Simulated scan of single mutants.
Amino acid sequence: MNDYWCIPSKEDADFVACMEDVLDVYELPYDPMYPVVCMDEKPYQLLDDVRQPLPVRPGDNQKTDSEYKRNGTCSIFAFVEPLGGRHHVGVHEHCTAIDWAMEIKYLSDEMFPDAKKIILVMDNLNTHKAASLYKAFPPSEARRIIKRLKIHYTPKHGSWLDMAEIELNVMTRQCLSRRISTLDKLKCELSAWEMERNRDTAKIQWHFQTGDAREKLISLYPTLSSVTF
C-alpha cells in the first residue's frame, strides 16, 4: 500500500465512486466461473556485480560489494486471484500497450480458459485499456478477449486498493531483494517463484470494506446539502 497516504486531501467523489466499486468486487463470494483477478506492474532494474561476492560461510550472510553495474531495465507484470490462489508473473523488456495485451491474452486463454467472465481489477494506466488489444491483435481477436473481461479500475492515488500491489511486495521480499543481472535470469527466478506460489495456493485475505471506508475516509465523501430523498 505504497501510496495510502497519497489519497486526496479533500473530498473527491470520483475517488469514492471507484473505491466503493472495487470494494464491492472484493466482497463477492468465490466463484471459479467468475474469478476475481488483480493485476499490477512494476519496473525492475537489472544489476550485476562488479566484484564477485565473497563465498558464503556457514552461519554468515554473503558479502557483496556496494559497487554494481547497471544492465538496463524491464517490466514485471503480476496477476493474482486472491480467493483462488492462482498466480502469474510475466517479464517483458518494455511496458508498452502490446506487452500488456499479450499478458491479458495469457490471462484469458491460459489462466482461465473456461471462465464465463474474468473480473479484472487494476489501475487506470494509459496502456491498461481495451484499445491496447487492438494494437496487438486483429479486431476479431481483440474483441473476443475484451468480451471475456469485466474491468474495474482503482481510483487515482488508490493503487493500495489493488491486491496485486500486495503480491508485488511479497515478490520483492522473497525474490527480488538482491541483484539479478540478466532478463533471462530474472525470468527463471520469477518462474520458480510463481510455481511455488501456485503450489502453495497462496491467497490474500482483504479486510478493508465499504463500511470501513465510510468511517475512516469520511473526509473524502462529498458533504451533502439538505435534500429530501
Rank of each mutant, 00 (worst) to 15 (best):
G211I: 01
R178K: 15
M171W: 07
K42L: 03
E27P: 01
D60F: 02
R173A: 12
T96H: 11
A164W: 06
A142Q: 09
Q209S: 14
V91Q: 01
V50H: 03
K187Y: 12
S226K: 11
L28I: 04
A101G: 10
T73S: 15
N126Y: 14
D114S: 15
V91H: 01
I180D: 05
D31I: 00
P32C: 03
T223R: 12
W160H: 04
H152T: 05
D12S: 08
S181L: 10
P58H: 02
M39I: 09
Y68P: 05
K10M: 12
H87D: 04
G85F: 05
D99T: 00
Y68V: 09
F112A: 00
C6I: 11
S219L: 11
K156L: 13
R214Q: 01
I104W: 02
A115N: 04
S177V: 03
L220G: 01
Y34H: 10
L176M: 06
I119K: 05
V56P: 01
Y134R: 04
A131W: 07
V56A: 05
G84S: 09
Y44K: 05
C74F: 03
V56R: 12
A192F: 08
A13F: 09
T96N: 09
N71R: 12
T210G: 09
V121G: 04
F15R: 03
N169C: 08
A115W: 02
P82C: 01
S66R: 14
L161H: 04
K129E: 15
G90M: 06
T172Y: 10
K69N: 14
Y68H: 10
K203L: 14
I119G: 04
D60H: 10
K63C: 07
A101R: 07
K147Q: 15
P43C: 02
K129G: 12
L133G: 05
